[in-house]
Amino acid sequence: MTHADHRPGDMRATVRETYGPADLSSAPVFAGGFINFGHWRPGDLDGPPTVEDRIRSQRDLYRRVLDAAGPLGGGQLLEVGCGLGVGCALAVAEYGPSRVTGMDIHPQQLERARRANSGLLDGAGAGRLRLVRGAAEDMPFGDGEFDCVYSVEAAQHFDDLALFAAETARVLRPGGRAAVTSFFAADPGAAPLLAELLDTFAKGLDIARPPSELTDALARSGLAEVRCESIGARVWPGWDHWLSAQWEPGTWPRNFLLAWERGLLDYYVITAARP
């Protein structure tokens, strides 16, 4: 069964394994429980990469996305593909929402997220965070329930960006905003080359699509002010610098930088608003 044959709510086998038994969040390369490539500062490239720099880069990628969504104080926020929920916890701590809902398709990830965020779920902060199982293409929420829908480095896994865009538009209230960051292919023709360079594309964990597939879908879904900004210069060199301490040149994870330098893929922040 290909990713195009899946029904909303299904998981491809590679997604089920990577975020289930394999527990990608436990890999040292994703220190701190975040699972993203990071938004790096220029000075991070000057010396040996540190775990502290790595964790800060991942937190800064969340801040980059949440800042792009505009003022969030008092709002209802939804993170699509929340993983361990550490980004949700950052949003609760730093952006003053009334509540953050973290949604993920993988039940094992959600169980880990509940353990990692028990204080926000059950302690003094109870009610500030809730965790829900659901798919990007079939969100289990009512119309107009959220002031902001955001997603950090998960859209490359979504089976159907058009359904994700339609669901995002549906669950946003009028005046609400969406902010998505992920990596996308330069164009559909880049897919075979990316599969040659990068195991995650070869194995189907990541899907090679241009950013226009999402921006066009958001516009068709009725969202306005659709914008797409490249942030690759703040992602790929820092990510490769961090990898250099753990992976040899020529190994496939180092090829993300090579793919960017060849113009095969880039990293973007995409935003939109519901009129």
Results as ranks from 00 to 15, higher is better:
34 F>L: 08
108 Q>R: 14
275 P>E: 13
118 S>Q: 14
222 G>H: 05
45 L>D: 06
124 A>P: 12
197 L>W: 02
22 A>H: 12
240 D>T: 06
172 L>Y: 07
18 T>V: 13
155 A>K: 04
120 L>A: 04
234 R>H: 13
252 W>F: 09
250 G>T: 11
157 H>Y: 12
42 P>I: 14
74 G>T: 12
260 W>Q: 14
117 N>W: 03
172 L>M: 11
206 D>K: 00
252 W>L: 00
189 G>C: 04
30 F>K: 02
236 W>Y: 15
263 G>Q: 10
48 P>Q: 13
175 G>E: 09
194 L>A: 06
107 P>G: 07
253 P>N: 11
154 A>Q: 11
23 D>M: 12
267 Y>C: 05
190 A>R: 08
34 F>V: 03
3 H>P: 09
18 T>K: 12
139 M>E: 12
81 G>A: 11
269 V>R: 09
210 P>K: 09
268 Y>Q: 14
181 T>E: 07
156 Q>K: 05
55 I>W: 01
231 I>D: 06
275 P>M: 07
182 S>M: 04
242 W>M: 03
102 G>F: 05
267 Y>E: 05
70 G>D: 11
111 E>V: 06
149 V>K: 07
271 T>V: 12
197 L>A: 04
117 N>R: 08
67 D>F: 00
123 G>E: 09
259 A>N: 06
234 R>D: 15
196 E>C: 01
147 D>E: 12
167 E>M: 05
175 G>K: 09
50 T>C: 02
235 V>Y: 01
195 A>Q: 15
10 D>F: 00
121 L>D: 08
29 V>T: 15
78 L>I: 14
38 G>N: 09
215 T>Q: 03
139 M>D: 10
33 G>E: 09
104 D>E: 04
28 P>N: 11
203 K>Q: 13
40 W>E: 06
28 P>E: 13
43 G>Q: 13
214 L>G: 02
155 A>M: 13
46 D>M: 09
271 T>I: 11
248 E>F: 00
186 A>L: 01
126 A>R: 15
143 D>Q: 14
251 T>V: 02
12 R>E: 13
137 E>W: 05
46 D>G: 05
184 F>P: 04
133 R>H: 01
52 E>N: 00
271 T>C: 10
163 L>K: 14
4 A>K: 14
227 R>H: 10
143 D>L: 04
